[in-house]
């Protein structure tokens, strides 16, 4: 294909993914969270704006857009501003390797990179740098503390995620997400690797700073954590980063454990979305069910429990796959 066609495909693809994530993950996701939390807490949630409250987040976004752009004095302007771009961009970069379905021309994925899951892990780790920048750049004790703790937490939970990715890659024989989905055509990995899924789910919840691991942003704790000083739209962009990353983790879990887009009858994209939302629902359910961990419990749990379990899981799986054939 001539280069300008490739370029057009790339640009259009990017715009579609960004818009889809902004709408589906950020807007619908926030609304979903509020509705689900309401349901769990026996109340109704937003119903006023739009039919059944569906336009609530749209209204919120419009409101946030017209808020004043306040930069706290003594804040480091360059870093303060760049952090807002780094966090959502890194989260959105995850979507490059997620396969949403399959068409007769091939899988519906932005780009099936050979290093698929490694790429996902790498871009997730860039978010931590953005968070540190936001925390420090705000010149605010709470933001800085929140940022540092967030970073320590995310970094501690990246290891179990990495170990699970290694285990699944071993079973599929490849780092490419599409190959991993194809490797599940006979049996989904959730069946052969339930421990891996549990580890992944717990670690992903911690990685996205969600409850019960959301100490750094809980309302009653450090104000809003690393994004305390960000007003209006920039706050919204950080939320986009967080919800985007949560949806990306859920989508990765669907790809790694639930056979991706595969399913009888319905079109592949529909199956993918069903599984994705089912998992997102579980993420949200967990949030509104369990009490919060303290930071020391959180870190101890990762290093003393999750990582040893993940290592054991890897070794046992490898033993059965390689030595026992």
């Amino acid at each position: 294909m001539p280069w300008y066609v490739e370029l057009a495909r790339a640009v259009v693809g990017t715009i579609i993914i960004f818009s889809a994530v902004a709408i589906v993950a950020a807007m619908l996701g926030v609304l979903l969270e509020r509705k689900i939390s309401a349901w769990i807490q026996s109340r109704i949630g937003p119903t006023h704006t739009g039919p059944r409250g569906l336009l609530q987040t749209v209204a919120d976004t419009i409101k946030l857009l017209q808020k004043e752009y306040i930069v706290p004095q003594n804040a480091d302007a360059v870093i303060f501003a760049s952090a807002v771009v780094v966090v959502p961009l890194a989260a959105l970069l995850d979507y490059v390797v997620l396969p949403f379905g399959t068409t007769r021309w091939g899988p519906l994925i932005f780009r099936d990179l050979n290093i698929g899951v490694l790429y996902f892990a790498a871009t997730s780790s860039l978010i931590v740098v953005g968070i540190l920048m936001a925390g420090w750049g705000s010149n605010n004790k709470y933001a800085l503390l929140g940022g540092l703790r967030s970073a320590a937490q995310m970094v501690s939970y990246e290891i179990p995620i990495g170990l699970v990715l290694v285990t699944i890659s071993m079973l599929a024989g490849s780092l490419s997400t599409v190959t991993i989905v194809h490797a599940q055509s006979r049996l989904w990995f959730i069946v052969s690797q339930p421990v891996s899924f549990v580890i992944f789910f717990i670690a992903a919840t911690a990685e996205v700073n969600r409850a019960p691991f959301d100490l750094v942003e809980a309302e009653s704790e450090l104000v809003a954590g690393y994004f305390s000083e960000y007003t209006g739209m920039r706050f919204a962009l950080f939320q986009l980063g967080e919800y985007g990353e949560m949806f990306a983790m859920a989508a990765l879990a669907v790809t790694l454990f639930f056979g991706g887009w595969q399913g009888p009858g319905l079109p592949s994209v529909v199956w993918f979305l069903i599984k994705l939302y089912a998992l997102v629902f579980v993420f949200m359910w967990v949030r509104w069910t369990y009490p919060r961990f303290r930071i020391d419990q959180l870190l101890r749990f990762s290093w003393k429990v999750l990582i040893p379990v993940a290592l054991l899981n890897l070794v046992v799986t490898a033993y059965f796959v390689i030595v026992r054939g």
């Binding site: 790339a10 640009v11 990017t14 961009l89 959105l92 932005f110 780009r111």
Partner: peptide, 13 residues
């Protein structure tokens, strides 16, 4: 493609 994604993405953000 990834490079395009980064630039267009940064612009959109």
């Amino acid at each position: 493609y990834v490079a395009v994604f980064v630039f267009v993405g940064a612009a959109m953000v």
